[in-house]
Amino acid sequence: MKKLINDPADVVAESLRGFAAAHADLVRVNADPAYVVRADAPVKGKVGILSGGGSGHEPMHGGFVGRGMLDVACPGEVFTSPTPDQMLEATKAVDGGAGVLHIVKNYTGDILNFEMAADLAREEGIEIEAVITNDDVAVQDSLYTAGRRGVGVTVLAEKIVGAAAEEGQDLAAVAELCRRVNAEGRTMGMALTSCTVPAAGKPTFELGEQEMEIGIGIHGEPGRERLPLASAKEIVERLAGPVIDDLPFASGDRVLAFVNGMGGTPQIELYLVYNELAQLLEARGITIARNLVGSYITSLEMAGCSITLLRLDDELIRLWDAPVLTAGLRWGA
């Protein structure tokens, strides 16, 4: 294992300390229990937006804490859900009296921990809404699986509901908006290489030099199929095709096209992928009204990408364009 670390056991805590030092103008970091909270929290009368999940997906979620996006993020251990006691303290830290929205990615561990946290917070008199994101079309949504995973749409939902909360929408409206964003978005990802959890010390899975995994999750969970390596053009077809067919996106739709890097893929390749995606969507009559290209929901050093499409309307465009000031995303502010 070659990593820029000291002790595998200290990776999350030491990285958070660095994040706090680098972004002291935007956030405060509480060490135990761990959470990243916007510097001016709680904002009186504003719905608090809390998200959380395992570490190793940076900049998600801590990098999205700040004005116009998240109020607080709970980082777990690498690829491991945060815990209910941690979420409860984070919830209290951002409760400005208007309730708190929990954004939960659909993973069994996250769901169980967030359910317990919501129970605890309600016992303390804080109004909680929880919205589960589950946009990964690689997983068949059936009674026989834990259901579709929450992936790329989570980033877009956090931005959009963050803007809605910032302009004063109430908890019910913000939660409904979050559900709508999730319902209008779809994602599929792929991996060129595996990744190594620091505490495990060896790759989560093995992938041969000439192989790729289509439909990968953000923790290196195997996906739909393992195939021989193909061109970027073919990979984009394999990812965007199922995404388009699933919603389905239709000719005339306006979308936000999000090409996300898994952590180990350089920008030059992500823009190459975006070029292929733009051509594919144009051929299908789908208009890219907004885009996001970069590594925002990652899987440690995994190489690969995911493609997310979100169907937009005027309100979603307005909220997407609204000012945001976080370590990971910032414009207009």
Binding site: G54, G76, S81, T83, D85, G109, L112, M116
Partner: peptide
């Protein structure tokens, strides 16, 4: 139970807790 819930994380934390 509370120690496991706060320290294990994942699905195993709430379940063993």
């Amino acid at each position: 139970g509370m120690a496991l819930i706060s320290k294990v994380g994942g699905a195993a934390g709430p379940l063993y807790g």
